[in-house]
Amino acid sequence: MSGLEPGRLSLNTATVREQWGLAEAIEGCARYGIGGISPWRDKLHEMGVDAAAKAIRDAGLGVSGLCRGGWFTERGAIDAEVRNDNRRAVDEAAALGAECLVMVVGGLPKGSKDLPAAWSLVEEGLAETLDYARKAGVKIAIEPLHPMYAADRACVNTMGHALDICDRLGDGIGCAVDVYHVWWDPELETQLARAGKERIMAFHICDWLVPTRDMLTDRGMMGDGVIDIPGIRGLVEAQGFDGLNEVEIFSALDWWKRDPDEVLATIVERGRSVC
């Protein structure tokens, strides 16, 4: 399999969140020929939605996704604040022309050990948000997170579980497939085939370091770890996915400390050589 030219890559702004704001990330993508961007909402709000949308359009970038909606479980109920924030996220995704709104669904409510109750709350929140998103023409992408995040960030941890929810909720909802979270799953190939083109809404790449020094902020640059990125990309593309390959690297100990131009230059090189 041939590597990825920069035009097939997208920069998730988490990758340079400590060095750059959104305006600088947009300019950096354009300068390095990277084809798209995926803003996190904090950076989007700093710049302003309208200004960001215009700058992204003017730079000729695609928007592979908006990060993130979700967090349905934190309060133990879908209250007005959670509901309204997710609706705002849908509106922002629509304004940007994002391919999808990525959902990090939330873990166990504080003090709870009731995982099935958390799952029910997640599905309730997704159903409500999906009803609103359909009217706005925005696709909702559940991002199953690695099981190490089940308690505090996302209690949906496999493609199979995410697709079960999609089956029940219907059109307009699918998955964001992040290799960091799903590479270990023995059912991955089967579940990607089950998802098909319509429900693979985003594809995120980075690498799993050995050892991993921090559960959240020690992801690796592509090629520095143990994930078979070309193999998983091949499985995703076999289902017809032809979207941007989104680079999302949380790296407090390494890449967040480097010159962001070095980060983007390395992303372009690794896209070509190891992805």
Rank of each mutant, 00 (worst) to 15 (best):
F250R: 03
R168A: 04
G160N: 07
V236D: 09
L209Q: 06
E198F: 08
E237Y: 10
W208C: 05
D214H: 14
D171Y: 05
R194W: 12
M222Q: 08
A193H: 14
V177K: 02
F203T: 07
W255E: 00
D224G: 00
Q191S: 11
D152K: 09
G196L: 11
D178E: 11
M221Q: 09
G243M: 05
M148K: 15
M201L: 15
G220T: 02
A202D: 14
C206D: 12
L235S: 06
A151D: 13
A162N: 03
A238Q: 05
V226K: 10
W255R: 00
C206F: 01
D242S: 14
W208N: 06
D185I: 12
P230C: 02
I165M: 13
L235D: 06
R213S: 09
G172D: 02
A202W: 08
A176T: 14
E248C: 08
L216A: 14
E237K: 15
D242T: 10
L244W: 05
E237P: 07
W255T: 00
Q239G: 01
D254N: 08
W184Y: 14
A252D: 03
G160Q: 13
I173M: 06
V226C: 11
G172V: 10
I205L: 15
V156R: 04
A176R: 03
C166F: 02
M159I: 06
L169R: 06
P230N: 05
A154F: 08
H161G: 01
L216S: 11
L188Y: 12
V179Y: 02
L188D: 08
R233W: 05
Q191K: 13
A154Y: 08
A202I: 04
I200M: 08
D218T: 09
W255G: 00
C175Q: 09
P147C: 12
R168Y: 03
E246R: 05
L163G: 04
T217S: 07
L169K: 09
S251D: 07
L216H: 10
V226T: 12
L216M: 12
A151W: 06
H181F: 07
R194L: 05
G234D: 15
M221G: 01
R213K: 15
A193R: 15
A202S: 14
G170T: 01
A151I: 04
A151Q: 13
L163I: 06
